[in-house]
Every structure is written in structure tokens, then in C-alpha cells.
Amino acid sequence: MTDIILQRLDDSFDRWDELLALILASFAYMNGRIDPPSSALSLTSQSLREKAKNEIAYVAFEDNRLAGCTFCRPEPDSLYIGKLAVLPAAQGKGIGRRLLRLAERTARERGLGALRLETRVELTGNHTTFANWGFQKTAEARHAGFDRTTSIEMRKILI
């Protein structure tokens, strides 16, 4: 069994190209499936570096290889979970769940009573996974220029 190590991104992190590749590989299954395309496609190594400065980011390593990540942003009553990504080859090992547990701890430390995320309406498998992890659908939204629902909001209330 390989070791999974989780850590918060800090100024010592220098593997931005690898992090970008991880996110793009993790989100690749969405290409051609969701409309509009994922915002992950517009990320760069530099924009990830900036995102990490403005948000709380965690990465998961499996045998010194980046295997997962998430970016969290405090909001008035919740912690927003964004870019939760796990390499396809590392999925099914509990990495996503462990990253979410870190987010839960972060939310509690900040006095926030919920986690919030958004997922695309077409990604019903994600809806099921998040529901299994304790999230409930709370809203529907549409991207600018669309006259149909393009994403759903899900929340997990922290007890």
C-alpha cells in the first residue's frame, strides 16, 4: 500500500506545472460533455500560483507524485470547495474524501458551518458521489449567456 501525504500549499511549493497537469488530467473527462467548457481549461501555472495565494489550497502526494488537490475559499457562511481534482489513476483510493475532510476541518477552524461546491448539471456521477459524501443539492444556476441550468450548488452542513 502506498502512502498518501496531504499538505497545505505554501510558499515552498514549486510544482505548478505538475499541479496544472493534474487538474487538466482530472477534468479531461468533461471535455465535450459540458457546455460551457470547464474553467480549468483557462488555468495556467501562473494563475494557479495566484489562486493559491488568495485561497486555501491542499495537495495530496502518492509516492512523491501529485495525486490530488483542492482549492478552498472562505465565504460568509461556508467554505467554497473548488477544483477538487484527483488523477484518474489515483481515484478510488480515498484521496478526494481525505481532501474534503481537510476542508471540513478548515471550515470548522474558521467558524463556518458548511461546505459549498458547484458541479455541472451534466455530471450526474459527481452529484451522486457528493451526495454519498453528505452534500445536498441546494440551488441551480446558469452561466452567462445560457437559458438553461448549467450547474448545481451542493452544500454539506457541518455538525
Rank of each mutant, 00 (worst) to 15 (best):
L66K: 06
D77G: 06
S42M: 10
E55Q: 04
E75C: 11
S39K: 12
K51M: 12
Y80W: 04
D14A: 11
A25W: 07
L117W: 09
L99H: 12
D77T: 13
K53Y: 00
A25I: 10
G82A: 08
I56R: 10
Y58E: 05
L117Q: 08
P74D: 09
G125Q: 07
Q46T: 07
L41M: 08
N54G: 07
N54E: 15
F61M: 03
K83F: 01
P76L: 02
G32R: 02
A21Y: 03
A107I: 00
A131Y: 00
D3N: 15
I95G: 14
T106P: 11
A21W: 01
T128S: 03
G94R: 09
C69Y: 05
A114W: 05
G111T: 07
G96E: 00
R73C: 04
P36M: 08
D3L: 05
R120W: 01
D77Y: 06
C69Q: 04
K51L: 14
E118C: 10
L24E: 14
R108D: 03
I95Q: 13
D17A: 07
Y29W: 13
A107N: 01
S42E: 14
R65W: 08
K93Q: 15
L6W: 10
W16L: 05
N126Q: 01
C72A: 14
T70G: 12
T128I: 08
Q91F: 05
R98L: 12
V59C: 15
A89H: 12
D10S: 01
R98Y: 04
R116I: 04
T119K: 00
A67K: 12
S39C: 10
E104I: 04
R120Y: 08
F27W: 02
A25G: 14
R105Y: 02
N54P: 06
G134R: 07
E62P: 11
G113R: 15
K51H: 09
Q46H: 12
Y80P: 04
V86A: 13
L6G: 11
W133C: 07
N126G: 00
L84H: 01
R49Y: 10
T119D: 00
T129Q: 13
I34T: 10
D3G: 07
L99S: 15
E18G: 08
R97Q: 08
L112G: 02
T2G: 03
R105M: 00
G94N: 13
S38T: 11
